[in-house]
Design a protein around this nucleic acid. Sequence first.
DNA 1: GTTAAAACTTGATATAGATCATAAAAGTTG
DNA 2: CAACTTTTATGATCTATATCAAGTTTTAAC
Lengths: 231, 231
Amino acid sequence: MTTIGSINTCTVGLDRCNCFESLSDEEMKLLNENIVEVKFKKGETICKQGSFASHVMYLCKGLAKVYMENQNETLILKIIPADNLVGLTSLFNGNNVFQYNISAYVDSVVKLIDINAFREIINKNAKFATEIIQIINSNTVQTYGRFFCLTQKQSYGRLADIILCLSDRIYKQRSFELLLSRKDFAELSGMTTETVIRMLKKFKDDELIEIEGKNFTIKNYDLLKKISDYG
Amino acid sequence: MTTIGSINTCTVGLDRCNCFESLSDEEMKLLNENIVEVKFKKGETICKQGSFASHVMYLCKGLAKVYMENQNETLILKIIPADNLVGLTSLFNGNNVFQYNISAYVDSVVKLIDINAFREIINKNAKFATEIIQIINSNTVQTYGRFFCLTQKQSYGRLADIILCLSDRIYKQRSFELLLSRKDFAELSGMTTETVIRMLKKFKDDELIEIEGKNFTIKNYDLLKKISDYG
DNA sequence: GTTAAAACTTGATATAGATCATAAAAGTTG
DNA sequence: CAACTTTTATGATCTATATCAAGTTTTAAC
């Protein structure tokens, strides 16, 4: 029997986008005529919740977060590494407004693709549309997992999830420079900053992790995994 | 300035599916050769989390819930009224396994559509693929809203959301026969059955709602809406 | 290089909801 | 319709996590 991947709070997809390979020369031309490349500095807003969605975005370089907010609260929906297409939810959706904010964790390069050109290509090229469905679907599966975890798991489990996720999927090593703040951890895991700090300290005291300034190291991966699974 | 719909825990989409209209005669034939119609009794499982996803489902008649579970907990992802396509997440997703359970609240009729035939049509017909993207996207937007609410709103607000959602989107009247149990409410709003019971009682005492046996009536819609907005 | 603003930290306290226990109703089944 | 199961209900208690308050450290800005 195959082991099915456990449900976790992880925010980063595994896929790299290669959806543009199925485009014809003509479609590629249309696309290129409707793309602008924009550089964003660390901390800058790439797209704003509630504003008109005139484009979809392709993150060429950098790291970004996608988050929803109201007056008082913020929830980070996902973290986007390079080579990812974002903003697809606005594609054919009644109001044509971004459902979320996106902002850059580090200096980033984003290609803005005119949404009408993008729609046109989808409407003509079924292979491309299939690729897009693929991307949207794997995103949905991930969101369901996060949704389940954030509503059912205890805080320690959720925090462990996110630490493992950063290590496995973004940095691909056990030791890395932490780009997220404690507040980001809080907004990823649906708790307060204070609670995150206390729990990170507990992990440190229990020698699961090590934090020195911005340097973050996982010292006991297996136990963190257990906390993630049973937390 | 247009008022943008407030974020809520609502679980029911507004769309009715009319995606099959864009199919050619030939595609329609392929589809029809790969459909079986199955009747499910109240309470029966329509699809099982973890099992192979050999088909997508179209709910012709009835009412169903889509939910995820592990050993101890359950989260209802959404409630599906008639004329809805479900199971699309498995379409092109690596493992081809259902991510959730679906079960019938009332006697229901479901068309099971072979997933390979469905894929084939998407892969050929960009208009159809576009419709599917539309469906998936409006589902995603709704899931994001629920995700935000369940992680940020207090329980009273979440419960109010669901009551309003049932009234507005499923029954389309203020008074209706309640098909959901207290446990369903709990699994929809991410709390325990006991808490739901206590809160419903509070709503009753405050004359926001009336419950007599299976008969459920909303007596103060506006105040429930306020609780939903500020809860 | 000083000052202001964020980001982090820690402790004390509060509380929304969970958990546990028990029982009455309501539904189901042979 | 008697026996059983499930759902609803309510009270007592507990606890994980939020909130508030006050400090330190780091980062950004002028």
